[in-house]
Design a protein around this nucleic acid. Sequence first.
DNA 1: TCTAGTGTGTAGTATATAGTACACACTACA
DNA 2: TGTAGTGTGTACTATATACTACACACTAGA
Lengths: 116, 116
Amino acid sequence: MAFGGYIREVRELRRRGDRSFSLRQVAGRVGIEPAYLSKIERGQTPPPSERTIRRLASELDEDADVLLAMAGKVSQDLQEIVMLRPKLFADLLRQLREAPDHAVLRVAREIRDGDW
Amino acid sequence: MAFGGYIREVRELRRRGDRSFSLRQVAGRVGIEPAYLSKIERGQTPPPSERTIRRLASELDEDADVLLAMAGKVSQDLQEIVMLRPKLFADLLRQLREAPDHAVLRVAREIRDGDW
DNA sequence: TCTAGTGTGTAGTATATAGTACACACTACA
DNA sequence: TGTAGTGTGTACTATATACTACACACTAGA
């Protein structure tokens, strides 16, 4: 799904329960011009910066990483994790590319449970 | 270590064994202007694009992911892996941020050995 | 009916990114 | 001793990124 269309959908959904989710008001709270948000939602301009996407996510109560992905971006903090140990994480990610979700989840769980 | 300085170091090292690793000739084979490579190596300009970094890596027989990391970038193909399943990989990476190398390696090995 | 609020069209801007092009002084070596 | 090759200084450029500013037509509610 395209970024802009999804934002519009989510915003209009929130709006049904809360009048303050008009394009103008959301734009205001997010800190961008209404005309800009309008263009974003209709895909007339590329998705905005990570900073703005994060604010949109928080305003619309959506997952920032998912919105960033829809926008074709990867969170800067994740990039930094990879850049600190590039070989390690490059190998890991390429290894996990085709792995089914549950396998990746199990791996994450094992790590979290701290059996290093 | 800074990107440019490292490139210079590696290039001059290669050069001791092979005259064709002059700045001009490497720039030529990589497909950029010598003046540009000169500025890159002295840090007078930000690191080049992923495309150019990859060519440098291949020319200098260095690991592309490592050079990209030094340049403050993450390979586009890795970003795409994350973007396909953003929640999954965002969680995993944040989970693994502090994990010691051997723990991450073990995880990669387990996955590779295909015990899904 | 009027007015406050709505979304959108158009035009413009600042900054970053990713380089090219050319001239210059220096060096090695044939 | 000249000339081919070296690295670098300066000036410029094209494209992308990430927006702002303002005017406009429409609509819902008091």
